[in-house]
Nucleic acid binder design. Sequence first.
DNA 1: TCAACTTTGTGCATTCGTTCACAAGCAGAT
DNA 2: ATCTGCTTGTGAACGAATGCACAAAGTTGA
Lengths: 266, 266
Amino acid sequence: MTDQLPADDALTQREIPAATVSRLPLYLRTLHDLSEDSQSSVSSKELASAAGVNPAQLRKDLSYLGSYGTRGVGYDVAQLLDEISYVLGLGRDWSVVMVGAGHLGRALAGYAGFSSRGFRIAALTDADPRLIGTHVAGLTVHAMDQLAALVAVHKAEIGIIATPAHASQQVCDQLVAAGVTSILNFAPCLLSVPERVEVRKVDVAMELQILSFHEHRRRNGDSLPLPPQSSPQAESQTVEVSESEPSEITALPTRLPQAPRMAVAR
Amino acid sequence: MTDQLPADDALTQREIPAATVSRLPLYLRTLHDLSEDSQSSVSSKELASAAGVNPAQLRKDLSYLGSYGTRGVGYDVAQLLDEISYVLGLGRDWSVVMVGAGHLGRALAGYAGFSSRGFRIAALTDADPRLIGTHVAGLTVHAMDQLAALVAVHKAEIGIIATPAHASQQVCDQLVAAGVTSILNFAPCLLSVPERVEVRKVDVAMELQILSFHEHRRRNGDSLPLPPQSSPQAESQTVEVSESEPSEITALPTRLPQAPRMAVAR
DNA sequence: TCAACTTTGTGCATTCGTTCACAAGCAGAT
DNA sequence: ATCTGCTTGTGAACGAATGCACAAAGTTGA
């Protein structure tokens, strides 16, 4: 098993790095803002600062597109918009099929930011018979057995899963079987898909837990039952706890106090 | 401006890497699933596969927690659950204040996944006078000028911004002024905050654009008006385009055909 | 008690991503 | 025409993250 990659070698080679791709939409949005202020030209310094990234990183990112700025001047806003739009495949409208017409599904279906960016929610399905036939944001909710037909009719390449976690893998399989090759998953679970299918996930609870980590760390810092070693001389914190009491952790949960706790030190 | 970091040196030093932190909620969820199947012990191989990561990575991640498994056996599911819960600060309930009672805000307020994970939406505000006083998921929508008071009363450390982009910076400033130190932002825009405040963002349109990139790439591959150099001999793709026509890009948008396009090659 | 087996924890190599720093190139002034 | 000043594009240094491979450490069974 000495990894012999399939022949996507020469292709994968000069690919735009994933990290860059994930920033392109950011640049696009920032450029859009600039162009609304009728600014026609922008330097990497300016654009980077507006996007919240390092100027060198911006330039390197753009260099992958082969998009040329003008030395001494900067980038043409309109041209760069076109360039990035093109690379992101935003030159056309995309049909999106959404599964799940619960709270989240309905909210997403009504989100104006989709259509304004060329993503058309073409169809909406749900497993709940009570929802079928109801209307959401101008769409009729269809039954799950219509899914394949809807994907075909609307030539949808992108699917959105806004169902409970327990249903999501099955829904995913149906989407894939229907020909969808990109999936945005809002259900908190791992989806298994064929290699050719691209999955991205949005998990709000996960995001909150990451925030919770930082809050917790801020408060309890590194002072806790620690391993043999005395804690290093790190005491001076810059954390301002605004107005509340000095950390009143209500109730440590099911924690067993026996397990050696090491917060930070390796 | 030769970056002289503040004295969070010794602290940041042995910190758990951000990449690891972002995976901990994933492990937590996976362990939860296992424990519901009343599995009491799990090996890194098994857990990693269930979480969709490399076993070595899992072990290294867990090693930052100082959480010890048992060699020859694996990890105790319950203990690991506790361990990760603790590190993520999930030993307590967190009060969350949400701003924006539009489609998204309402959907999020009703999301069961929050409360079940210890995140209590304690209050909900909106700028729209028509929404104030209405009820959403058992909460009354309050006016924006109540925000600071609500944050104080509920001792909320976490804020969620579910407003339109144009309002989000102002809302963010209000949250920060009220003492919130962690923000989850659903509005598509960059927030500027003091250093001590942690911001995470969820941008669905951005996710769709990244998917769109891959779809586009899959279809148009590297065959496009290219720079002088002839394209390398990369032809054999493994992409199956299921059933649709062989790429019928409806209308290239505002694209100027003059700009040299280089899709992949550097 | 000891040997065979399993699985962790981690040093190390490698890959990926970010940032620096500077030569190359263009615009505009003189 | 040439020179000055600015900004791009990118090689190279750095740093973070990943994954391999193996010693250490425990379990199980005889």
